[in-house]
Amino acid sequence: MKMLLVAEYRDGKLLANINELLGFAAEMSADIAVFLVGTNDLLPKFQGQLYLADVGKHLEYNPDSHKALLLQVVEKELPDFIVFSHSSYGWDLAPRLAFALGVSQISEVVAVAEGCFVIPACNAKLRRQVKSLSLRTVLTLQVGAFSAIDNPDTLPTVLPIDTDEVPHAHFQGYEAAAQGGVDLTKAGIIVSAGRGIGKPENVAIISALAKALGGEYGASRPVVDAQWVEHNRQVGTTGQSVAPKLYVACGISGAIQHLAGMKKSEFVVAVNTDRDAPISEIADVLVVADLKQFIPALTEKIRSL
């Protein structure tokens, strides 16, 4: 089995999601080649062939020429699978390639089973198992679904590629993420403070962890009532209902009013000294510890990742 993995370069960086694609290929025991529109000095770490096009010429978003470049490589490598990350780059480019090749694309793969690919359906409430009917198959992998592998000391053999395809869409540059007003309902990661934080100064511990994780901080009702945290950060029946990927409940016992506002979170970590606190019922992980010691230690370690 042969796979062509598509790495991504953005704004001066090689994105780490290539390591998950490498992990997936390893799990499938596939032979690999990697495709990248990037630069010579930032290469993914693996053993094998890297097809490299110059990002200076082909830009970071230029689906027409990226597609043309990929087609060249597919013709040469004849891979069984062309694998993207299900990222803004992957879901944009993958269908273009699939159509040009006349093959199927399976989006947001989370697992492999019975020679088929498993993907989420209905907001991840269901799973669908899909079989490809085409000679080759384009896959996009859900971010985080497969374990990344890291080969610190290996470097690929670089084979430059080029094309003179004229683009239809013209990339003009980036706009930085907006700062300002918080909307917890849109946050992918929320770290929330409960009564257990003890005093207003400790909100800083919570917000520091949120920042280190790239998320937002929230609070339970008592903390907001005490005016330690502003109301638009309140989670619960009288605050926001949230459904982040990760919800870290710090010093929150788990009153039903609070649970109602966060029970749809995908993964819940509770930090509490009371192992029988009701929050433990819906937590995926309960850390029995004093949050004033544990959270700063955790934040420090996450920062240094």
Binding site: E114, R127, R128, Q129, L133
Partner: peptide, 16 residues
Amino acid sequence: QQETTRIFFPEKKGGG
């Protein structure tokens, strides 16, 4: 170019 072979519910969370 593809077909669904099965649809199912993801496994429930075990105890925390």
